[in-house]
C-alpha cells in the first residue's frame, strides 16, 4: 500500500511560525508531567535536579531550544501556575 502523504496546510509557505521562550517557576511544580507529555512540539523533559519538595520540574530538552512555537498549551494546562511561554520572534 502506498504511503499516505502527511496533511499540510495550504498556507504553510506564507505563515511564519513563532518561536517561544519557556519560563519555569521550579518551586511551584508538583511533577504531574502534564506539560511534558502533552506539549504539541515535545519541547520539554524532566529536570535532573529536584525542587525543594522533591519534584522534577520541566526543562527544555537538548536540541529543542528553538522548538517552542509559543502555543501556550503548557501555561493553560499547568495546575500549579509554574510554566509559561513568551514569543521571541
Amino acid at each position: 500500500m502506498a504511503a499516505v502523504p502527511l496533511r499540510r496546510p495550504l498556507d504553510a509557505e506564507t505563515v511564519v511560525v513563532p518561536v517561544g521562550q519557556v519560563f519555569v517557576i521550579p518551586e511551584r511544580c508538583k511533577g504531574c508531567r502534564f506539560c511534558i507529555e502533552f506539549c504539541p512540539e515535545q519541547v520539554l523533559v524532566e529536570s535532573d535536579r529536584m525542587n525543594a519538595k522533591g519534584y522534577r520540574y520541566p526543562v527544555v530538552a537538548d536540541g529543542k531550544e528553538r522548538a517552542c512555537v509559543n502555543c501556550g498549551f503548557c501555561r493553560l494546562i499547568c495546575p500549579e501556575f509554574a510554566i509559561y511561554t513568551e514569543e521571541i520572534r
Binding site: 519555569v24 517557576i25 509554574a82
Partner: peptide
Amino acid sequence: MSGEIYVQAHPVDHLVRAD
C-alpha cells in the same frame, strides 16, 4: 540560545491569590 529561563512569578499571578 539556552533552554528554559527560571523566574519567580507567572503572568496570571494577579488573577490568583499568589500569596
